[in-house]
Design a protein around this nucleic acid. Structure first.
Lengths: 187, 187
DNA sequence: ATAAAACTATTTTTGTTTATTTAGTTTACA
DNA sequence: TGTAAACTAAATAAACAAAAATAGTTTTAT
């Protein structure tokens, strides 16, 4: 039931943005507010739980990739960057902007998560040490990767150009890793 | 004198953000408001002139690069991306945020200029046709380049990491063009 | 137990008035 | 001719009150 509520919560966000009422949510779920409050003590609590779970799930996926001995460092870097969080429609620039206004604490938590990415930085540093990655300012590399992947949060852009988020992320990673220049000889 | 005023204008912005008075500006210049208004009819007019001139100068530099027969397509692309506008301290995220609030029209003009970049798109398209650039969605490539170069507007980041804007832009372009992966065999 | 609706205590929003700031002008004076 | 300072009209912000919306609770009925 908790999951049903969280899904409906995200559906509401998707339709009306961050500004919807608990009455809306109960109506969408076809349950009474009373029942709703049996499962979550407060509105913010639902939001916190969603954030908590998606970030945790994101970290798990990342950790699993890092621990996977089958993967080369390059594959690990590639995979880690292209991890897409559950409820990914939730991570949308438009939504985040509203969240910054109405739930600044929650926004900050997401913002930090999106701009830290320590696991990736360690992989990049390892990559540099091993000569896999070009030797440049790590902070700058991180900023570039983060900014590039964060542009995948601009759902409007992808909708307008009918590209899926996953396709976009894959393209972005390929370009970041191997560059825009065609190194292979012409066919 | 117009130039002196514009420079002082930018200095004021640099110190106090977009919110400074014409009295501040006159004081900084050591002239009276009366004299100030002899040279510019209004405050917005100074701002408009600065924007006008920097954008025009940016376009000129770009055009010169494109017309230069000495340069290969690759060199052209690289050069065009790394063009830095005059008064570049003016193009700073923090400032632009304030400009969006206090001078929305002017902000939009800059915003459009920063997010259009038709000259570059044509070079990229040519690059794809000629097989120089990887064959991917042009819009996505453009978005990636624009987002990446726009992160050079985040002056705080560069200050904190003591990187100059030019260095950063050069690094960014190199990475975008040739990728993070070291293609050359280890030394 | 659960839904539906009524209820309440807060928060948010909206509108209004007042006070402050400031762009642009005018005046006085060197 | 140009500075400094005073001035004004307009915009901006601050303060406040009234109104509306809504999170969370309670009641009623099934």
């Amino acid at each position: 039931m908790q999951v049903r509520i969280m899904k409906a919560f995200i559906e509401e966000i998707h339709n009306k943005g961050m500004k919807f009422t608990m009455d809306d949510l109960a109506r969408r779920l076809g349950i009474s507010k009373r029942t709703l409050y049996e499962h979550f003590p407060s509105k913010i609590d639902i939001l916190d739980t969603i954030i908590e779970q998606t970030l945790a799930e994101f970290d798990e996926k990342t950790e699993k990739i890092i621990q996977d001995d089958q993967l080369s460092l390059l594959e690990k870097i590639k995979s880690v960057i292209t991890v897409v969080p559950k409820y990914n429609e939730f991570y949308d620039l438009r939504i985040l902007e509203q969240m910054k206004r109405f739930y600044p604490e929650q926004w900050e938590r997401i913002h930090n998560a999106l701009n830290q990415w320590d696991a990736l930085r360690e992989l990049i540093e390892q990559g540099i040490r091993e000569g896999l990655i070009v030797e440049r300012n790590v902070q700058l590399i991180m900023k570039l990767i983060i900014d590039a992947t964060n542009s995948a949060l601009d759902r409007r852009f992808f909708l307008e150009n009918s590209i899926t988020v996953s396709d976009a992320l894959n393209s972005i990673v390929d370009i970041l890793l191997f560059g825009l220049i065609n190194s292979s000889p012409e066919k």
